[in-house]
Computed example of a mutant assay.
Amino acid sequence: MASPILAGKLEAEIKIKSDPDEFFHSFGDKPHHISDMSPSLVQGVELHDGDWGSVGAMQVWKYTHGKNLDLISSLFPLMRKSSWHSFKVIEGDVMELYSKTFIATVHVVVRPGARYPRKEVKKFKTIPGKAHESEGFGLFGKISEEMSLTGKQVFQIEIKSSGDVFHELFKNKPHEMSSISPDIVHGCELHHGDWGTVGSIIFWTYTHDGQKKVAKEIIESIDKEKKSVTFKVIKGDLLKLYKSFTFIVQVENHGQNNLVTWTLQYEKLNQSVPDPTTIVDLATKLTKDIETHHLK
């Protein structure tokens, strides 16, 4: 029986058109102004110790996420010179689910023709049986004035089963997943090429949000050294919502424990399409099913 996975990391990007410096300073020097910008989410931010914008300052946030909540956070340095603001939660409602640590990081990156605040590089450890991998994901992102059609989500899962075997499954034997995780994967067929080769096309049947769905994917790349496989969706149900969707599955070996990193890169068809947080849940459950199978 696999032990519960308590540590995790979630990451996503949002494209904004507003001034990046102003966005950065809103979280660093003027978080108490955010309640004026996003009153439906943030009802107030008070300074309890230190000075606004200073490392070690403690702030109390009152916000709404399903219900009215509050937290006390401490601003601390993490690559501060590179436009990062990191908040470590030390008290509040979040800690009822994430008992040990919860860190939210906002990073503003200026790119040619675009500005991206990287929302919530969340690092957390959960209480077994209470927390949900995507719980709270999107709070800081929703504060941004405008969301982009393009997005990226990165999340990591620690497993105790073999990283090499995990990589081999996605690389050469994805057709075995229906017997490992039958509630999610019902079939994986080879439509072109050979198993484990770049350019091969595979056809998945699976269940997502309680509905049976399909996806045809091409293997875009395989990195044997990094133990990474990239799948690009070319047909199927996901493309009813997303113009493009790519999965990257990577495994890092760390002795008895290994780290599985999923990267979802996508472009929505329109602004009403949600971020694929339910796909995060699906991939997380699939990863846990694979770990459980290999630990038997």
Rank of each mutant, 00 (worst) to 15 (best):
A2V: 15
A2M: 15
P4L: 12
K15M: 13
P20Q: 07
D21T: 14
E22F: 12
H25W: 11
H33C: 10
D36F: 12
M37N: 12
S40I: 08
L41E: 06
V42Q: 02
Q43D: 09
L47W: 07
G50H: 11
S54N: 05
Y63R: 01
T64A: 07
K67Q: 11
N68I: 05
D70G: 11
F76L: 06
L78T: 00
I90V: 14
M95E: 02
L97R: 09
K100I: 12
F102E: 00
F102T: 03
I103E: 03
A104G: 14
V110I: 15
P112T: 14
P112C: 12
A114E: 10
Y116T: 14
P117T: 05
P117K: 00
E120Y: 15
V121L: 12
K123F: 15
I127N: 03
K130L: 07
S134W: 05
F140T: 09
K142P: 00
E145F: 09
E146R: 04
S148P: 04
T150V: 09
K152D: 07
Q153T: 13
Q153V: 15
Q153A: 11
V154K: 02
Q156C: 01
Q156T: 07
Q156I: 01
K160C: 10
H167T: 10
L169P: 00
N172Y: 08
P174Q: 04
I184G: 03
I184T: 01
C188L: 06
C188V: 15
G193C: 09
W195I: 05
V198E: 08
W204R: 02
W204T: 05
G210T: 10
K212Q: 12
I218L: 06
I219R: 04
E220M: 12
K226F: 13
V229D: 04
F231M: 03
F231W: 04
I234T: 13
G236I: 15
L238H: 03
L238T: 02
K243M: 09
F245Y: 10
Q250F: 08
Q250T: 11
G255N: 01
L264W: 02
Y266K: 03
K268H: 04
Q271P: 02
T284H: 13
K288T: 13
